[in-house]
Design a protein around this nucleic acid. Structure first.
Length: 821
RNA sequence: GCGGAUGUGGUGAAAUUGGUAUACACGCCAGACUUAGGAUCUGGUGCCGUAAGGUGUGGAGGUUCAAGUCCUCUCAUCCGCACCA
């Protein structure tokens, strides 16, 4: 039995393809598991991160198939997106051609890795059939008011020539190309994700058991709910006059109403309408206007560096004290949070304090620590006792918050409000390779939806991609059409959708039987079975942590929207989420620019897919980083080789051999015990721990134990079980062994036999005062007295001259003798 | 600053509920077989020490018969968010 990965793996890959081995059944009476990896962008080649991702989901899928479940383990391609266009600009190829060629190549890679994906449910999101149903949802959402168009001050990436959503701006830079993002004023479509802010936050509770805590926290912070008081500052007489009666005041939001008596100035964002009005009407001097404009145009990073601002020469009236308070424009006030205006309490807020120090504004303390002096050189932001706060003096600041809100409400001058950091999701992109937004601009009817029977609104293929401007805009005929409503000449929307829209519902499309693909996106019945039998959502969703906010938040939002549109009946798309760690080489993330990549194809060529899979699952638990190690890969290969070649000790069987446990030698019993221990461990791993490394270690131990004995029945039983346990990890070699010896009959659920764990005697550790000194061997059913007596004798040396005060026997573990001098 | 994690041999990492710390593997050392080995097999390998023994899970305390595991404080590293009023 000489191991040769190449031929062996190819044979089984062909066998699986011919036998449709991994297609899910349409029998909805069976228990199911939906195992899903985050689908890839067809960049051209798989990288090790992909291999890790799909190796994990494949192990789950194969395991559950063995356990008798109906398993859906699909794959597709997230195939719209900028890199296709960038490649087109660079090589003059067409984005569509580039994309679909890459898909073909990557499908070959999937095959060569032995992933048990359903082939019949494969699709790419750039397929027109997919676009058709997506556009249908978009129309539904527009009708429900969940999609709208407005002019906004948007994130614009100069190098990608497109708008970005807030979630796609990382540290002020584009998530894709890392270029600095600038602000641009333009029209854009938005999904009303803020309507779901509260539910998205609340339902995180449902995910507590299935999702990593880190991801839940990140989403919670991103949604950023805060409760507080909203009220209006009104201008004094003089200021009203200055503004020509156009503004009577402005709203502010605060989470610290308890500090209201400490307000010493107010501030508004440079983008605020009052500032705009003052600039347009020359109510400020030239120099100030220039500085404010500069402030507006500064990048978000520059804007954070130092605080700056200008007094606007206006005063507002404090709502409670009725005293005048000055109004400033300040760069630290953000237009897109709350109302773009704040009350400032330098004594109890660090930002307000810094600003007040810089511009010599008054600092009025109104909260002091209990029984301590207040420090003057910093803002006191902790809980404390109110003073200088009229009728609220003496209150605990926590209690004062609700009391003051109640007071404002009673007086009718303010109300309790909730604010979110989450903003609406901007979805239009000014690029070609995306799903067209199915709207038409008509001079007489305004924005009109395309009729559903005309979907999809497909992309034209005869385009010229130069990187300058939107190719759809420049196409000679595509955008000219008739208004679906009045029939007059109209113009198509040339914006396409953010690619995150496609990935927000692809997991639902996989639930649809390909038989019905033409007629519907998915059926309620199919969705109910795959997504909502037992646990809610996909059973195991596996992917990188980098999607903790973007994709995972959008997909949750889409699921809730489709529920409200009547397409499905549940709230959350992914019941269990496993976020895999990165693949590193030399301590850094593998990347082309660093030149530390390992090409999966080369590893398969040299060692085979099984080796790559074994190494990946063995080297670290799934959630941890995985350091690539060439000699450990070599080690994985050697294990497989030994595993394969030692199968010569196995006899052909169609069921496990009968073994008389009592007749076995010590080594034979030990080997059997190790085999079944490995089985127990394997079942644990899939049910909750996912630590494949320990499962594999168990199998290695069992192999080592088998090798210490020569009983062919024990070898055969061992291989029957071990090749079943290992099949999800190294499927090719296991199917080969299984077919040669066991007619593939062992690739099913295996039963644990308890008798192999029975022992006549057991080794116990003996410690004196908790320090391990020696060990003893006693009969399994030895009474406590006897165990203690043996332990005392064996540990005599450490007991001499001391008084024994306590004896502790932990059954099957150890004996602890407590002594003192 | 806020939030989340993680610290165990030379390395990747094990250790259900507190119960023999370092399983499994890589590496290293020695030996066997070899003309040769980056092949294969066997044995060894936390640290200090010739040994007896001592010591050891980032650090300091604590609870306990017993702590990698529980509690308090602290240090370091990584990740995420970050002027959110």
């Amino acid at each position: 039995m000489q191991y040769s990965s190449k031929e062996l793996e190819k044979n089984w890959q062909e066998y699986w393809a011919e036998n449709r081995s991994f297609e899910p059944s349409e029998d909805f009476a069976k228990e199911k598991k939906y195992i899903l990896s985050m689908f890839p962008f067809p960049s051209g080649r798989l990288h090790m991160g992909h291999v890790r991702n799909y190796t994990l989901s494949d192990a789950f899928a194969r395991y559950y198939r063995q356990q008798g479940f109906n398993v859906l383990h699909p794959i597709g391609f997230d195939s719209f997106g900028m890199p296709a266009e960038n490649a087109a600009i660079k090589n003059g190829s067409h984005p569509k051609k580039w994309t679909y060629e890459n898909i073909d190549y990557m499908k070959g890679e999937f095959k060569s890795l032995g992933f048990s994906f359903s082939k019949e449910r494969e699709f790419a999101t750039s397929d027109e059939l997919y676009t058709k149903f997506e556009q249908g949802f978009i129309i539904d959402m527009y009708e429900k008011g969940l999609l709208y168009r407005k002019k906004g001050f948007l994130n614009w990436c100069e190098s990608c020539h497109t708008v970005l959503a807030n979630e796609q701006v990382i540290d002020g830079c584009c998530w894709r190309c890392d270029n600095q993002v600038v602000k641009k004023d333009m029209n854009q479509y938005y999904f009303k994700i803020t309507d779901y802010a509260d539910e998205l936050l609340l339902d995180l509770n449902k995910l507590e058991d299935g999702w990593p805590k880190q991801v839940l926290t990140m989403q919670e912070n991103w949604i950023g709910k805060s409760n507080g008081l909203e009220f209006k500052f009104c201008f004094d007489e003089e200021s009203l006059k200055k503004l020509g009666g156009n503004f009577d005041g402005f709203e502010v939001f605060t989470t610290r109403p308890d500090t209201i008596y400490g307000v010493s100035y107010t501030a508004i964002a440079p983008e605020h309408e009052i500032v705009t009005y003052m600039i347009e009407n020359s109510l400020l001097d030239e120099n100030t206007i220039a500085k404010i404009k500069e402030m507006k145009n500064a990048s978000s990073i520059d804007r954070q560096k130092t605080k700056s601002g200008f007094a606007l020469g206006l005063d507002v009236v404090h709502p409670l004290t009725k005293k005048n308070v000055p109004l400033w424009v300040a760069n630290f006030v953000l237009m897109d949070y709350g109302s773009g205006a704040v009350m400032a309490v330098p004594a109890h807020d660090e930002r307000d304090f810094d600003f007040a120090k810089k511009y010599n504004l008054p600092i009025n303390a109104v909260i002091k620590p209990f029984g301590e002096e207040l420090k003057k050189d910093e803002a006191y932001t902790e809980v404390g006792e109110l003073f200088n706060s009229e009728l609220f003096d003496g209150l605990n600041s926590k209690d004062a918050q609700s009391k003051i809100i109640e007071y404002f409400q009673a007086q009718g001058i303010g109300k309790k409000t909730t604010n979110y950091k989450l903003k609406d999701w901007g979805v239009s992109r000014q690029r070609y390779w995306g799903a067209p937004i199915p709207f038409v601009h008509c001079d007489s009817c305004g924005i009109v939806m395309e009729k559903k029977e005309n979907l999809p609104v497909a992309l034209p293929e005869d385009i010229e991609i130069t990187g300058e401007g939107n190719p759809l805009e420049k196409h000679p005929t595509w955008k000219h059409c008739k208004c679906p409503k009045c029939g007059r000449d109209a113009v198509r929307e040339t914006d396409t959708m953010d690619t995150f829209v496609e990935s927000s519902w692809y997991f639902l499309r996989f639930c649809a039987s390909p038989k019905n693909w033409q007629e519907e996106a998915f059926s309620k019945e199919q969705i109910k079975y795959w997504m909502h039998q037992g646990q809610e959502g996909v059973d195991h969703y596996i992917g990188g942590i980098e999607h903790a906010i973007l994709h995972l938040l959008y997909a949750r939002f889409f699921t809730k929207v489709l529920r409200d549109l009547g397409y499905l009946d549940f709230d959350e798309p992914f019941g269990r989420l496993l976020t895999q760690g990165m693949v590193l080489k030399d301590g850094a993330k593998m990347s082309k620019s660093k030149g530390n990549t390992v090409d999966p194809d080369a590893i398969i060529e040299k060692y085979g897919a099984d080796t790559a899979r074994l190494f990946i699952l063995f080297a670290a638990p799934p959630t941890q980083e995985l350091e690539w190690n060439d000699s450990a890969v070599e080690g994985a290969y050697k294990f497989i080789k030994r595993f394969y070649e030692r199968s010569v000790n196995v006899d052909k069987l169609e069921t496990t051999p009968y073994i008389e446990q009592a007749s076995l030698t010590k080594e034979e019993k030990f080997a059997r015990k190790k085999v079944y221990e490995a089985l127990v461990r394997a079942n644990d791993v899939y049910s909750e721990r996912y630590t494949f490394n320990t499962m594999i270690a168990g199998v290695m131990e069992a192999m080592n134990a088998l090798n210490l004995q020569t009983n062919r029945d024990v070898w055969s039983e061992g291989y029957w079980i071990l090749s079943s346990i290992m099949e999800p990890v190294i499927p090719h070699v296991c199917w080969d062994i299984s077919s040669k010896y066991f007619a593939l009959k062992n690739l099913t659920q295996q039963k644990v036999i308890e008798e192999v764990f029975a022992q006549d005697s057991i080794t116990l550790g003996v410690s004196v005062n908790g320090k391990r000194r020696c060990e003893i061997e006693v009969a399994i059913d030895a009474p406590k007295d006897e165990i203690v007596a043996i332990a005392k004798e064996k540990a005599q040396k450490w007991l001499e001259g001391k008084t024994l005060i306590k004896e502790i026997v932990v059954p099957k573990k150890l004996v602890n003798l407590v002594v003192k001098d």
